[in-house]
Design a protein around this nucleic acid. Structure first.
Length: 440
RNA sequence: CGGGGCAUAGCGCAGUCUGGUAGCGCGUCUGGUUUGGGACCAGAAGGUCGCAGGUUCGAAUCCUGCUGCCCCGACCA
């Protein structure tokens, strides 16, 4: 993409309302536009990051055996009356009426709807286990939205729902998601730590929050230092291996880890002092087992091997892609701007023409731009008629992993300079070598 | 929902106390000189001062009501 033809409204100064660093940087980098309290438009650069996150989430959901569908944002109130949550959910739920005065709502979650879909088609234990998920916008009318997309009212959520014949099966489904989450966050460039969690209004009795550590995190967390170096399961993990998966989960729940609301000072004292990590954290995922909480009232039942109908055991599993955009920035930035992990970066390479209009620079850039593109490398080519300093500042701000600087000084030697955004290291090399390095 | 604050050009702000018809920086546009870490000169465009009433000869400024947004707290992916 040529920057001169792109839509990247960067700001030199952050709007006053933005307080935390990810919100400020998202606004400054032209990723995000606030439309109302807690409601945002994703601008092109922000959308690219969001899509990359979604892709990784999808791949790992798929790997674990979950199947994607797509449910609507608007739901009928009747469904929620069936589960009893229409009255229980409170003002967080945005309630609306259609032209026929029917009660509708903008879904804050989809347990009821997925249960309705499930019960309409699934009748036999032979069709289990089943895990269905979607990635869809949710609306929760938070009393106080804040921190940009970190706590918005409208937000994108991946929510998966598992269906099993019994608790043991549900436990395995839970473990699959547990492992999928470990892999997902690792692939997003984050160190996530599963922490025992309260189950909240969703209900149930087995639940973990996946927390990433960030100095600007919203909650206080306590965990054993060993979590920071624990090995994340590889892509070859066998999700059908019940005992193997349980082993991974056991390992990842073997040490102390708790958010402040679940903190147990007595147990914390048992952690060796040099192993105690007390920090701030951001919740990026949450998984629940809730048994028959929805299946019983909503009559989602299957016939078991003995012919008797039993309500299924369910679980739900959430990840917030929009929040993750901010969480990744919180975990990865410096004074100059965002430092994207390569897997989620909106572009891999920023190609900076340091002297637009100079025939040698224009030619070298044009060639690199074309060749990188031909190799499938995502390049943002800064071909604006601007000072080098401004281009450096923009590239640093938007956090593209590699900057290729093409200027008269280097070209005189037949070289371009490649800078890694993450550590600031720079290396002079021929355009051919740069092409080779960057298309790996 | 309790407490606090803010609303003036795309962004950051001054002007409000003490009423006289709106200004600065950045950005934008034109021309020129520039070009390896946010250039310089000259010129220009851009604002119903959040909205509605009121007081006054006159309101960004004073009064009343409303709306929006932000921060702290309680609650939450």
């Amino acid at each position: 993409m040529r920057l001169s033809r792109y839509f990247l409204p960067i700001l030199r100064e952050a709007p006053r309302e933005a307080e935390i660093v990810s919100h400020r940087l998202m606004l400054r980098a032209g990723m995000l536009r606030q439309e109302a309290a807690g409601i945002y438009a994703f601008l092109p650069l922000g959308l690219r990051v969001l899509r990359k996150i979604e892709t990784i989430v999808r791949e790992e959901q798929g790997r674990s055996g979950a199947i994607e569908l797509l449910m609507p944002t608007i739901q009928s109130a009747d469904l929620w009356r069936e589960s009893g949550r229409y009255d229980a959910y409170g003002k967080e739920m945005l309630r609306i009426k259609d032209r026929h005065e029917r009660d509708m709502l903008y879904g804050p979650t989809n347990e009821e709807m997925i249960t309705e879909i499930f019960r309409a088609y699934v009748r036999s234990y032979k069709d289990l286990p089943l895990n269905l998920y979607h990635i869809q916008w949710k609306f929760r009318d938070e009393v106080r939205p804040r921190f940009g997309v970190m706590r918005g009212r409208e937000f994108l959520m991946k929510d998966a729902y598992s269906f099993d014949l019994d608790e043991a099966g549900a436990r395995h489904s839970y473990n699959k998601m547990f492992v999928a989450y470990l892999r997902t966050f690792a692939r997003l460039g984050l160190k996530s730590i599963p922490m025992r969690a309260e189950t909240g209004p969703i209900g149930g009795n087995l639940s973990h929050e996946f927390i990433i550590l960030a100095s600007t995190g919203e909650s206080e967390v306590f965990c054993h230092k060993d979590y920071l170096d624990m090995a994340v399961p590889g892509a070859d993990v066998n999700f059908d291996d019940v005992a193997g998966l349980q082993g991974i989960v056991d390992q990842w729940t073997s040490q102390y880890a708790a958010t402040s609301d679940m903190h147990d000072p007595a147990a914390w004292e048992l952690v060796p002092a040099d192993k105690r990590v007390s920090a701030r954290g951001i919740e990026v995922g949450h998984i629940f087992y809730f048994g028959t909480k929805y299946s019983a009232p909503m009559k989602a039942v299957v016939a078991g091997p003995d012919g008797k109908e039993v309500p299924i055991h369910g679980g739900s599993y959430g990840i917030g892609p929009t929040r993750l955009v901010a969480a990744i920035i919180e975990a990865s930035h410096d004074d100059a701007g965002i430092v994207w992990p390569q897997q989620v970066a909106p572009y891999k390479v920023a190609l900076l023409n340091l002297k637009q209009g100079d025939s040698a620079c224009d030619a070298a850039c044009g060639e690199l731009y074309r060749d990188l593109g031909a190799k499938g490398v995502e390049v943002l080519y800064d071909d604006r008629d601007d000072r080098p300093g401004a281009k450096f500042a923009t590239a640093d701000l938007i956090g593209i992993p590699y900057q290729v600087m093409v200027g008269p000084r280097g070209l005189a030697e037949g070289k371009v300079e490649v800078k890694k955004r993450a550590d600031g290291s720079k290396e002079l090399m021929s355009p051919a070598a740069a092409l080779d390095l960057l298309s790996k």
